[in-house]
Design a protein around this nucleic acid. Structure first.
Length: 242
DNA sequence: GTGAATGTTAACAG
DNA sequence: CCTGTTAACATTCA
């Protein structure tokens, strides 16, 4: 379920719980939940793939990992890893990890890198990328401190649209191409988010898990050695800078 | 039954 | 101690 756009969409869906008092909190996760009972959920925020539930006496960070799911006023058969029950309605997290922030939201999060935030700062992100001269662009795109909210789908789609080979080396990519890539990340994340809002699913791919890319060229798939994640790209369209 | 999938982090080896 | 690699986690779907 989760790349940044999914979390933003989830935040939208949870809006109606703002300002309401928690009757019961729990779940099989390790985080203690007694401190939440009887407290008001004053706000819901998100940063990248983090969902932040702000209470008067603390903040819960919810991460959906690879298989996480959050249901509203609905339950599955399996146990909930984290849940909030209100007088009317409930938020049920499955396979999510919840933890209480040890510092304030302001201390922990920089929204200049959040690809779905209005505060996203192209110049700032460009500067962070430049510092990674010798690394490859596929790794940098998944670095949550540079592109907060980018997951494997956005990575592959943005690189295709910017016509950059995933294994290009940062220092060798022309500055204008980096700019183009940043724009395509935002573009695709926006498409992803709008699709979710409209249809509840995102399945608009030009290269990710495709046999042929949108331009008709053949798609190559590689498994990255370190992360074991799959990258999909078109040799024909995407230029390798090394 | 098998394998793969939108992710992160703890544990381990060197 | 730092760096890089592997394992673990838990679920759904094809």
């Amino acid at each position: 379920m989760p790349e940044g756009p999914s979390i933003l969409h989830l935040k939208d869906e949870l809006k109606s719980f703002k300002g309401r008092i928690v009757k019961r909190a729990g779940g099989y996760g390790p985080m203690p939940t007694a401190w939440i009972k009887g407290k008001k959920l004053i706000n819901i925020e998100s940063w990248g793939k983090h969902l932040l539930l702000i209470f008067t006496n603390g903040v819960v960070k919810v991460h959906l990992g690879l298989f996480g799911d959050v249901l509203i006023n609905e339950r599955k058969k399996v146990n909930r890893s984290f849940f909030l029950e209100f007088v009317k309605g409930e938020i049920n997290g499955y396979v999510v990890t919840a933890s209480k922030l040890k510092k304030t939201v302001e201390e922990l999060y920089d929204w200049r890198t959040d690809i779905l935030s209005r505060k996203f700062d192209r110049a700032w992100v460009k500067k962070l990328i430049k510092e990674k001269t010798g690394e490859t662009i596929d790794d940098i795109l998944m670095d949550q401190d540079i592109f907060s909210g980018v997951g494997n789908k956005i990575r592959n789609e943005a690189l295709y649209r910017a016509a950059i080979h995933p294994q290009s080396v940062i220092g060798k990519i022309p500055a204008a191409k980096i700019t183009k890539l940043i724009n395509e990340v935002i573009n695709y994340a926006t498409i992803f988010y709008k699709q979710l809002s409209k249809t509840g699913v995102n399945d608009f791919f030009q290269v990710y898990q495709q046999e042929y890319a949108a331009d008709g060229s053949e798609v190559t798939m590689k498994v990255l050695p370190k992360t074991k994640r799959k990258i999909f790209f078109s040799e024909h369209r995407q230029k390798l800078y090394v």
